[in-house]
Amino acid sequence: MEQFTGPLGLLLRLIEKEELDITELSLAKIADNYVDYVQTNKNIPDEELADFLVLAARLLYIKSKALLPYLVFDEIEDNEDNLERQLKMYQDFIVASETLAALIGRKKFLFTPSALNRNWRRRKVVKPNFIAPKNLTPELLADRYEEILNRLVAAIKFLPEENLEAKISIDERIVSIRNLLGRKLRFSFSKFLKTAKNRTEIVVNFLAVLELAKQHELVFEQDGLFAEIQVVAIKQ
């Protein structure tokens, strides 16, 4: 993979690599590639990671819309947040930046008299003079410094405290479901969801089971409408 200059740059490269056009459908298709790449690539600078993840979230949103077309999404929000349009615009600018690089590459620089002055007769450099302000005393510096420290201490005191909840990841849950299926071969979906301690875990459980179904490790069985759903392992 050649170097890229940000999340949109990476996305564009991935789409071009798969020879796709920029459409909502190809964005949905490419979402997994993008997430994989961000997950495994160690070259993304920490300070840029958040922006890469924001795009990952947008891609997954688009993918979920493609997978569940019958769900009604907020159309207004949709228009403001049109990734397809944004990426096309970005692509236009990438093309333009190649043109600019070519312009610079011609080396047809324009020179002005100032360039001549600088090289032929070095301009006299005015050395900055240090003029101490009249009221500056060591005591004043000490006072100010203490004041700043006090302000910091006050600010730190007011920082709200919050305990971090132990979070469970989908990956971890997938492993535990695999183990469970290894032992039991089948289990009830509703009972399984009830083991969740909070809302987040319900979501994690749900996604983990769906992911395993997608990877053909399990199937769902249901005898009738609204009957209990059974999660059944597929024998390998």
């Binding site: 080396k107 047809k108 324009l110 020179f111 002005t112 360039a115 090289n119």
Partner: peptide
Amino acid sequence: TTAPQNADLVSRFLKE
């Protein structure tokens, strides 16, 4: 500014 078509020559002259 100097004209772009003379860029090579001018930059050599200025050793810029």
